[in-house]
Write a protein that binds this DNA or RNA. Structure first.
Lengths: 294, 294
DNA sequence: CCCGATGATAACCATCGGTTATCGATCCGG
DNA sequence: CCGGATCGATAACCGATGGTTATCATCGGG
């Protein structure tokens, strides 16, 4: 069975005229006649009654035609879909985000991707930088959001998205809450609520370096994620350093938020992916950063 | 799009091994590699991740595979069906029968055809010899039952099925009902109930010739079909000549049936069809006569 | 470190789909 | 009744392409 022959058959069936059908197919008439004849030989029965004056479908042809049309349509659809998937306009894309990302530039990226490629089935999972990278390496994710820096890794490409401002969350009555702007040095000696380093080692170290100059702060409590951290702050356990956009979406009673004086310390956001094994849609996703980031 | 390439793709996807897939397809491995590569070029993205040690589907390949399988299955089904129709094992067959046929050899033929070719959609229509031939010539029927003789007609082939015995239907009290066996000469001068000659001219003339020696009988009533004829007989209007098997299925109170003494006069039954334009199933139908008739 | 397995590549060949030229049949107008 | 026009079939030829064999490159394992 050959789709080309079926196409030829359908064209002749539509036109009931070999000359016109050949023209529509952009081939010469003899070739068309030959191929239809081959198809008839394959099936074992004529599909057309021909006279030099009239072409008509035989019963066999009449029965075959609708099925042939359907098959051709299915083939075209398959090809179209395959091309779309190959071009990254359709298919599945697994993205691992981080808890601190959805409210910042990451949300913007995901939203614009969804708007631009609605046919892509986007599977979003929330994790931490460290775990996300494991998932990426294990092939369970196509693109992951990370908090840089992340150690160099063979086959993994990191695309920097931008920086986000850090802020300080304070218990409502904290003495530093009296200041409108804070300096890193103000934090020295304060009780701090933090989170596990392995969630995002790069970010963790960067915060320590930028704010405490490499001398570790006094961590009086470690909570598993931002929300729990803020709850601890509200309870007066200590202060916490957080991402500005993130704390905005987690407004807690009993927590005062103070920005740093310019230049405010920041933490970065980046995408990591493996171009060699990523589906085409991943390239589209990463490609959008050039658009939204500019 | 080429079904062969899709087949190749599916084979490799099944085996995840070019060598084995090539063997299954009965081609050499390089050709398989080439064609898969062509397919990938057509779609614009690789379908497999290859290393010299491992072959795996890419995301694109994973998405494409089920659709490809379905399309191939549909193509195979189409081919199978087309072959079946071409071979007369499936499709549609329009058969025009006659009112007097279903109870005789015709029923046997139709039944055995149905049993043998259940996938053929048999459309049965009941008519008369004359009208059936018109339908056949007009292309509205594929095979028709007729009461021979029928005039020779270009492109129409007539296959004789056999003869059926004629009997006489008499009003219950008729004087001839006293005899167990009748002779044609007994009918001379009797009142006769008949039916329109144009329904089956050949049969009509043959009955007149065989029973009345060419001198037309005294037709006192003409009814449109057998059933009405018998009703008229029951009412005592006259006697009627009928087909033995037919009168058996139309047993009327008030009607006595008498056979002729051997050799009983008969009327024939035949099939007519147009081999040049008939669907393959028509040939199968006609072909069965050789089987059941022997 | 070499060997075996596996896919890719190179070079060649045959098949087949398509082309042009031409034929044969049918219908139509004069 | 004949000549021309229409249309599909046929013949002969050609080039693309799918398939072949031989060989290479890479990678994993003993």
């Amino acid at each position: 069975m050959d789709l080309r022959r079926l196409r030829y058959f359908c064209a002749v069936a539509d036109e009931l005229h070999f000359g016109r059908a050949a023209e529509r197919l952009s081939v010469a008439q003899p070739g068309l006649s030959q191929q239809v004849k081959v198809l008839e030989a394959e099936l074992g029965a004529p599909l057309f009654e021909r006279s030099s004056r009239r072409v008509a479908l035989t019963e066999v042809g009449r029965v075959l035609y609708p099925d042939a049309r359907a098959l051709l349509a299915a083939a075209d659809a398959l090809e179209e879909r395959a091309r779309a998937v190959a071009a990254g306009r359709a298919g599945r894309l697994r993205v691992h985000t981080t808890r601190s990302a959805p409210s910042g530039p990451a949300a913007e990226l995901v939203d614009s991707f969804r708007a631009r490629y609605p046919a892509v089935d986007l599977e979003l999972v929330t994790g931490f930088t460290g775990w996300n990278l494991e998932e990426l390496r294990a092939g369970r994710s196509d693109v992951v959001f990370v908090r840089p820096p992340v150690g160099p890794d063979a086959g993994v490409e990191v695309v920097y998205l931008g920086d986000e401002e850090l802020v300080v969350a304070l218990p409502a009555g904290h003495r530093l809450a009296a200041q409108r702007r804070l300096h890193p040095t103000d934090l020295e000696g304060e009780d701090v609520v933090s989170w596990p380093r392995r969630n995002a080692p790069g970010m963790h170290d960067r915060i320590e370096t930028e704010l405490w100059g490499g001398r570790p702060p006094r961590v009086v409590r470690e909570e598993p994620d931002d929300e729990q951290v803020l709850r601890a702050v509200a309870a007066g356990i200590g202060l916490a350093v957080m991402i500005g956009t993130r704390v905005g979406s987690l407004r807690f009673p009993g927590v005062a938020v103070r920005r740093f004086a310019a230049p405010a310390p920041t933490v970065g956001l980046a995408l990591a992916w493996r171009p060699s094994v990523a589906p085409p849609s991943a390239a589209r996703f990463v490609g959008l950063t050039g658009v939204t980031g500019s």
